[in-house]
Amino acid sequence: METFNKIAVPVSALILFVVLWELIVWANGWPDYVMAAPSDLPAAYIRFWELFLVGGWQTLWRTVAGLGLAVVFGLLLGMIMGFSRIARDALYPLLVGFNAIPKATLVPVLALLFIGQHNFNTVLMAFLISFFPIAVSVGIGLSTLEPEYRDILRSLGASRFTIFRKIALPKTLPEFFGALKVSVTLAFIGTNLVEIVSPHGKGLGALFLSGQTNSNYPLMFAVLIALAVLGIVLYYGVVFLEKIFAGWAERQST
């Protein structure tokens, strides 16, 4: 019953959403260049399915690659900030400042820095936009570790690395995954941003752009829906990993 509810509730909500959307478009008599109706979309998917597959794959792998970099770099930075007070004081303002820069302004900067490296630029943007939450949450998680947790191993002469591996890292995992859920959406936005803004882009963002240039409005809406689906897939991918690696934290709160 519970698993049934888990699937039935969101699916019903989705159907309701689509029906409402269709109804609103129909009731207002909007033409498809104002707002396409869900019934316009299948035609777009059937006609351009190959482009959707290729674009979807490009968007997906570049987002995941950027996020992967963000995880490695964010973990490293978080560890440095978590273990060293001086590093924390030095890096925090820099990080906050960097995070405050609207990332759209970086697209032309990157494009000039690495001319023609579209894949590289896209991955880089996904990375740049998404490492911040990971670094901050890991840093805070490590620096707020109660000293007793450290002392149970330190009193046995365990090395810093052992303490990190056996205690600090697993203890920080719930916070890390919390941040990763934010980061995955950010990385996805970063990828799409570059795809849409930069000329001769690839991926779903570029498909969206070509829909716009060709005034193919149903295609544009179809891309938006595809993006939403991909976003959901990525998000639940992280949730799945969280269940595997930090599932113990959930039990604790119930």
């Binding site: 109660e146 007793e148 046995l156 930090a246 934290a249």
Partner: peptide
């Protein structure tokens, strides 16, 4: 620190991601 010391605190500081058995095994 030396390996021949054992410590216990007011806070039991057990690791939630380990079973009780694996907590005891840790040292």
């Amino acid at each position: 620190p030396r390996k021949t010391v054992g410590m216990a605190f007011q806070n039991p500081v057990l690791l939630e991601w380990r079973s009780i058995l694996d907590n005891v095994i840790l040292p």
